[in-house]
């Protein structure tokens, strides 16, 4: 990309229902990401433009937004990967109420997580109070623990985004969270009832949109949701699905 190119942006601004796209332009130099452009616009022409960020390196999951309509981390979206012949649009996530400009109220996610039963380890394996786990056994849950809580998967999931079922559906992030607990080699809790009733895993019809946007490349649907769905089916509906189970349960479910 030639350095010092002027690019225009359409940034969605405002609060609640009073929102509009405003046009800004700024100079883009080599290697810049969308978040850099937003910061530059803040410093040059829109000092009160609200956005979240922390790490600028894809590690904290703060800067989630929709760039040209695509849910993405602004700090990991390079300007030279975008079509710059037209204004670049930046909007907040749509599945959550807007606070201001690019900042949305994601507190619902924190409330959902809190109601999921917490980690509950088996008794230590060794008299010194420690456990033994093989690397191969921790890896499955480690995949889910890479989650940076950017909530982009929640943003694209139609159950939340289009149907607004926040009251009965926990969303892919929380299936990943539950999977991390359920597949933790030491955990002894059973979360299947919550998954079925409060978190409504049945509403997921495996469109895999969540997997596609995950910046951590967590295979949300195949590795977390489908196995959980099977466990739920197993426990509550059809004993036959036991035959098709992808993995062995690590213990007999507690009743």
């Amino acid at each position: 990309m030639s350095s010092g190119k002027t690019v225009s942006f359409w940034i969605s601004r405002g609060e609640g229902d009073r929102t509009e796209f405003k046009e800004y332009s700024t100079t883009i130099t080599e290697g810049m990401v969308v978040l850099d452009a937003v910061h530059q616009i803040q410093a040059e022409s829109a000092p009160d433009l609200a956005c979240r960020w922390n790490c600028k390196a894809g590690k904290c999951g703060s800067c989630s937004a929709e760039v040209n309509g695509k849910p993405a981390l602004m700090c990991m979206t390079r300007m030279n990967d975008l079509d710059l012949s037209q204004p670049v649009s930046i909007e907040p996530m749509k599945a959550f109420p807007r606070i201001r400009d690019l900042v949305t109220d994601v507190s619902w996610n924190y409330a959902v997580k809190e109601r999921i039963k917490k980690f509950n380890p088996r008794a230590p394996d060794s008299p010194d109070g420690t456990w033994r786990m093989q690397q191969a056994d921790v890896e499955r849950a480690q995949e889910f623990r890479k989650c940076i809580e950017c909530f982009l998967c929640q943003d694209v999931c139609h159950v939340l985004r289009e149907h607004g079922r926040h009251d009965r559906f926990g969303g892919p992030r929380h299936f990943v969270y539950t999977a991390a607990l359920e597949m933790h080699p030491l955990d002894t809790e059973n979360r299947l009832k919550g998954l079925k009733d409060t978190d409504g895993i049945g509403y997921c019809n495996i469109t895999k949109c969540c997997t596609k946007v995950c910046p951590e490349h967590i295979t949300i649907t195949d590795n977390a949701i489908i196995p959980l769905k099977e466990r739920v089916a197993d426990e509550f509906y059809d004993p036959l699905t036991k035959l098709f189970r992808i993995f062995k349960p690590k213990r007999e479910p507690r009743r």
């Binding site: 109070g129 456990w131 033994r132 786990m133 690397q135 921790v138 933790h184 030491l186």
Partner: peptide, 20 residues
């Protein structure tokens, strides 16, 4: 550090299953 494990942390392992 061991307490973190009690609270659910999953650190990388040694071949004999302890914290690497």
């Amino acid at each position: 550090v061991r307490e973190l494990e009690k609270w659910g942390a999953l650190m990388d392992r040694t071949p004999d299953g302890r914290i690497l």
